[in-house]
Design a protein around this nucleic acid. Structure first.
Lengths: 139, 139
DNA sequence: ATAAACTCTATCTACTTAGTAGAGTAAAGA
DNA sequence: TCTTTACTCTACTAAGTAGATAGAGTTTAT
């Protein structure tokens, strides 16, 4: 399952993408409209800032805004940022690779191939899901 | 990520499928050969028995054995049994459906469609991965 | 100066995962 | 029938994570 963090991040990003021309958006505004606990959202937006997806302005008239192009921001990256690996087995991940301790021989591991397929398909779908796409499909 | 339980279950099932003609297999034998903690494996096999996939015989000459045909047993069902829903969002699961509390309107939820696709693809791949397939690919 | 708004550190509760311990029950075979 | 083998059941525990909340600190516009 996707964590709440990742899900809230996605909703917040869509919100910010939609208001990209309105200047900085208040955390409180996003929290209210997207039904996200504000304090929790603060931490999430901070992570997205450190990641280079968002920027912020302090003080009056401040808030958060998108600094990447909406078609550069995809759900695979967001999920990796908050939930770590997308793959279902540590031995088929790209960025978070770990050998399975109980695995006799990785080359002949019976289930590995299937979970490799699952990962590839999932990443493909999530990569294609950019903020641009999300804005379109929401109308 | 797949839980250890689900992963161990899959490995144990492949083991049992391979030895289907040898009569009951000891828990201790499976535990040793597949590198699974024995006590942990006991609980797993019991779950698979309650589920109707395995049966067991007590006493001398006892052990566990497969009672379903190897091509009836697929990894989607195993994963659901041990880890619950396959989908990444509660609102796109079939068996474990739950509305997302923060969701304004499910029909226009921006990310829902993508995660529906991910689920469908994943289930398709995992359904196709039966014990028969696994035995073949392992050679 | 002061109010607005983001930033940082610390803390908390409930839940889940992975695993262990040990007593109980059933069946086979001498 | 006694003993050994082997599955079954209940309870427990340690460690980690998710999903927050509280409050003080810092920066900036006016």
């Amino acid at each position: 399952m996707l964590s709440k963090k990742a899900k809230y991040a996605m909703l917040a990003l869509v919100h910010l993408a939609k208001h990209q021309d309105d200047g900085p958006v208040l955390i409180s505004k996003i929290a209210e409209e997207e039904h996200i606990p504000q304090k929790f959202l603060e931490a999430i937006l901070l992570d997205l800032k450190k990641d280079g997806t968002l920027a912020s302005k302090k003080g009056k008239g401040g808030g958060y805004y998108l600094i990447k192009s909406p078609d550069e921001v995809n759900m695979a990256d967001v999920m990796r940022l908050f939930d770590g690996a997308i793959a279902l087995l540590p031995c088929v991940t790209y960025k978070y690779y770990e050998r399975c301790e109980e695995c006799k021989d990785e080359e002949t591991c019976s289930i590995r191939e299937t979970f490799m397929k699952v990962r590839n398909q999932t990443v493909e779908i999530l990569k294609a899901c950019t903020l641009t796409q999300l804005m379109k499909s929401e109308g």
